[in-house]
Amino acid sequence: MGKTSDIARARRLYRTVLTIRRAEEALAVLLAEGLIPGFIHLSIGQEAVAAGVMDALTPVDTVTSTHRGHGHAIAKGMGLDAFFAELLGRDSGACRGRGGSMHVADISRGMLGANGIVAAGMPIALGSALAHQILGRDAVAVAIFGDGAMAEGLLHECLNLARLWNLPVLFVCENNGWGEFLPTDRQIVFSLDKLAAAHGIAHVAVDGNDVAAVASKAAEVVAGVRKGGGPAILECHTTRVGGHYEGDPQRGRDPADRAANAARDPLIRARAALTEPDAAKIEAEVTAEIAAAVAFARAAPPPKWEDAAASVYTI
């Protein structure tokens, strides 16, 4: 890779990480204002996984995500207007205000949905990979899951089937050390590399807070999957800076853990790859984009009952 493309990639990755960070910071404000229905799960501290993995994908590649899926949707190409309008439950939202935070989806861009059910996205990615395989598409499917989903039996079913049918699917584990309110080491007795080995699936681990490293590893692994090498697992060790949901008082969380997370901030590390003027220019642009999208969403109309009620069936 030449120097120019290195710089272009560093700019691109920083822009995505920053966009996700600023978008979620804006969501926290909108939530506090009472403008967001329900509750939201922020991915602050984990943005490099979304940015790095999606950088390795093409628009026809497909992704299934988790309940903490804002970053995945944005990085896969969902427009910010559609994103914010969806989070505010407006008719102009990506899902016309019917999905909200936990169900952001943009099928035309291969974003097959965040998901309110832990592990549920994994078999959906498998099915998408099956369609790519049978229809002869040059495409891969990516199943993103958290370490909490390692306790779901569905993970084993999916790893087994993916290997058995040699499906073009990449499993991306966002290992942030927490499953809801409980540290992972109090839930899980095995490691993902050993589970992968038991299924004959390649396992690659990466510092999930180093966006350049995630992007490089993801590009490598995705290339193998794309060539027909079968499924692979990319485990990204990352940090959930906030609680399980926005507003979670995080009782029982060691303050030292939070301080350690701050030291690994993926945003600061992504910025370090850029010159000051470069970073400042991107920051100004992203700030303006977020402000415009938030203004768009605030002004967007609510969904119409008739449209929603008529959408249960196609015919």
Binding site: L112, P123, L126, L161
Partner: peptide, 17 residues
């Protein structure tokens, strides 16, 4: 693997099958 195969049908249906 009923959970996986029915989930897989959902994904396949979303992706053109």
């Amino acid at each position: 693997s009923e959970a996986a195969i029915v989930g897989m049908a959902v994904g396949a249906a979303l992706s053109g099958l």
